[in-house]
Computed example of a mutant assay.
Amino acid sequence: MGTPIAVRKAAAVVLSSALLLSLTACGSSTASDGIAELGTDIPAMAFNEAAAAQLPDSIKAAKVLTVAIPTNEPPTQFYKEGTREMTGSNPDIARLIGQALGVKVDIKVTNFDSIIPGMAAGRYDMTVASMTPTENRMKVLDFVDYLQMGNSIAVPVGNPGAITEEAALCGKKVGLLIGSYQLTANVPAANEKCLAEGKEPIQDSEFQDTRQAISALTSGRLDAVLADSPILDFAAKANPAIEISSQYDFTPVGVGLPIESGLVKAVSTAMVDIVKSDSYQLVLKKYGLDGSAIADPRVNFAQ
């Protein structure tokens, strides 16, 4: 998914099916002071003077971080019902970073596969997009770990294809998100094993969001969907026609920052305090992601 150009730059765990259906994946931008949107139950993150001092001069002057967030994928990011305001674990983590650095957060909603090219074009300062640090992505981005998540395999209820592990996907029709770690890393590795064992490779179909992939699954066009565990777990709770047959490969995801932006020192310093804070724990709990917390926000640790 990367472009080799360097630059400067839920609610409760289970939301109702009606809310899930109301989340439309349209582009938008929402300016934010990073405080009100967290809700009254989430304390504001304390200002980190040492981290703020490490900000590039351009960000100090603008006092704004422009943050790319992908389109609707609850509970990690989605529009509040009836609004164009983004909520979810990723926007809220971005707001905690903004608070720690003493800057406003301006969220720009875009397709996942457009984030790295958008950074190369100077449109975004940062992304909080459940992006897995890989060696390829690290050619153009710095990464600071902020939580961990794994893969889930969603299948029709009853699991008619008996898909209980990644190895069982050989020869199956599998839905994946465009530009995802599953598509760019998991599937190529799985296909090597499939072919080595004399089996057919995975028949992958690419989708812009999980909702589209699940629609293809429930209509019989796919045998399975492979995506981030929080997203598919949420979808399975809201849709009785699907179930989760396997979860595996839990690894950290990172805040992405253009290499030449100079932001990595400020964000990594802020993140050390954030992962120790009540604010961080309460954000994850708010979206049912308590088990995704990390204690060590590593910098540029490729998966």
Rank of each mutant, 00 (worst) to 15 (best):
I5A: 13
R8S: 11
R8A: 13
A11Y: 09
A12F: 11
V13E: 12
V14E: 15
L15S: 14
S16L: 09
L19I: 05
T24S: 11
T24P: 05
T24I: 15
A25G: 10
C26G: 12
G27W: 00
T30Q: 15
T30F: 12
A31N: 12
I35A: 12
L38P: 07
T40M: 09
D41C: 05
I42E: 03
I42K: 05
P43Y: 08
P43V: 05
A46S: 14
N48Y: 07
N48T: 03
A51C: 04
A52Y: 05
L55A: 01
L55H: 02
S58Q: 08
I59W: 00
A62M: 09
V64E: 12
L65Y: 03
L65W: 00
P70A: 04
P70H: 05
P74T: 09
F78S: 06
Y79S: 11
Y79H: 08
K80D: 12
E81H: 10
T83C: 12
E85C: 11
E85S: 14
D92C: 08
I93N: 01
A94Y: 01
I97N: 02
Q99L: 06
Q99V: 06
A100D: 10
L101V: 09
K104V: 04
D106F: 12
I107K: 01
K108L: 06
V109L: 10
V109Q: 03
I115F: 02
I115K: 01
I116C: 04
P117Y: 08
A120K: 02
D125T: 06
V128W: 00
A129P: 01
S130Y: 06
S130P: 00
E135L: 14
N136R: 14
N136H: 03
L141E: 05
F143C: 09
D145E: 14
L147K: 04
L147P: 06
Q148V: 06
M149P: 02
M149A: 11
G150N: 05
G150Y: 04
N151A: 13
S152T: 11
V155C: 10
N159R: 11
L169E: 02
G171K: 05
V174A: 02
L177G: 04
G179Q: 09
Y181A: 07
L183E: 06
N186W: 05
A189I: 11
A189C: 01
A189T: 15
N191K: 09
K193G: 13
K193V: 14
C194L: 10
S205F: 14
F207W: 10
T210I: 07
A213S: 14
I231F: 00
A235Q: 11
A238G: 15
A241T: 13
I242Y: 08
I242P: 07
I242R: 08
I244C: 03
S245R: 12
V253G: 02
V255F: 05
V255S: 01
L257C: 02
L257S: 06
P258F: 01
I259G: 04
I259F: 07
G262R: 08
G262W: 03
V267R: 01
V272I: 15
D273L: 02
V275H: 05
S277Q: 11
D278L: 09
S279F: 07
Y280E: 01
Y280T: 05
Y280F: 04
L284R: 04
K286D: 11
Y287M: 06
A293H: 09
A295Q: 15
D296W: 03
F301C: 03
